[in-house]
Design a protein around this nucleic acid. Structure first.
Lengths: 210, 210
DNA sequence: TAGATTGTTAATCGATTAACAATC
DNA sequence: TAGATTGTTAATCGATTAACAATC
């Protein structure tokens, strides 16, 4: 138990779902939860849940009771690395960028979204108490706050240019909401967050799968 | 080739990335692309790419040349089911909901986002030419437009209630942006789009993986 | 032709499932 | 105790990688 080193990628990818469910149970005041309860709620197998949890939990589950909810939440959060903090910026202060800038949920996950940047002077100002700067301030501010992560919410036509600017400013991880492929050098990670793809996959899932 | 029935889930999950890359190449006027070019661009193995493409492409790749870009794009789009159309609604017309309502990218993927709904009368009106209705119109409008998919962009505290309302209105697929677990009956699919989790995973990826 | 690239068969690898003994 | 639940070992399953013959 708690041997968090050799955790497979498949197991790690399920942790956020466990965490979401467990937090819901904790909110209802549930003290212990069994692997089979988690399994049926999430639509997976109970033995799979036990194997996953065995790898990250600091305490084994108790026969007849199951796993202690609050303990498990702590263990999963620790595993996911939410104890470390990181700063991030938003590039593109349109509707989506501003919505994310105002989003309150990041702080719970160890992320400070410190500012947004936009090429248009008209967008400069602040949103929800957080500043929106012109693009030419990006390199300066990113360096000063050790920002390595950017959320890209610019129109598709501006995405590659914004991406290049981010990389020039020292960004090494990009969460890209623009539905275009980004050309990046080695050492830079891009994660694509294509809403249309997510939605299309979801629409398909209902009809074809079962 | 083109035997799109027995495509593994792993293969299907890579198709959007192929499509993104290929569209970028097509935009540059590239006519043919090799499996190894795709592989290096996407950071995967070339033989894996060939295996994936063999399952969805209607035409085999040509030795010395590679795959025809425009043909491959059509094949992947067809595989992903982007030829079928579906209507969707947004529930929650806050910043994120309004941004998604105004988002132009869905139409390319066979999805019509026809309207948004909000519990607050103050939000009713229109955004980017699309209507925002009060929540009590949901069942009526969803039924009339055969809407089976909802995008949930309400605050976390309102998520379960909004989810229940959606299900009561006949929704069977939910793309949930609220960072909470949703309790749904059998036959309803929930996909979690947790920005904070995505971002946290991205931040972690840069440091721990290599 | 020579060379680059393809598709396929076999081997390896990893993850899931099944079976079962251990525990409170 | 009896029963529910756990953790683990072995077996199955699926996906990736390696090797190589086929093709333009």
């Amino acid at each position: 138990m708690g041997n968090a080193e050799n955790v497979s990628k498949a197991t790690a990818s399920r942790m956020p779902a466990y965490l979401r469910y467990l937090k819901g149970e904790a909110g209802k005041g549930v003290g212990y939860v069994s692997s089979s309860a988690i399994a049926t709620a999430l639509g997976v197998s109970a033995v799979g849940v036990r194997k996953d949890l065995a790898l990250v939990s600091s305490l084994p589950g108790k026969p007849r009771l199951g796993f202690e909810v609050v303990r498990l939440i702590e263990d999963i959060e620790k595993f996911l690395g939410y104890h470390r903090w990181a700063n991030a910026v938003i590039i593109g202060a349109g509707g989506l960028g501003r919505a994310i800038l105002a989003y309150e949920g990041f702080e719970n996950y160890g992320i400070h979204v410190i500012a947004a940047f936009d090429a248009s002077p008209a967008k400069v100002g602040s949103v929800g108490g957080k500043p929106v700067y012109p693009m030419d301030r990006l390199a300066d501010i990113a360096a000063r706050h050790l920002v390595k992560t950017a959320i890209l919410t610019v129109p598709r036509g501006a995405a590659q240019e914004a991406c290049d600017a981010a990389i020039a400013a020292g960004i090494t991880a990009i969460l890209n909401f623009a539905p275009v492929y980004l050309n990046v050098p080695d050492g830079v990670t891009v994660q694509y967050e294509d809403l249309a793809v997510s939605l299309a996959a979801l629409c398909g899932a209902g009809t074809e799968d079962r």
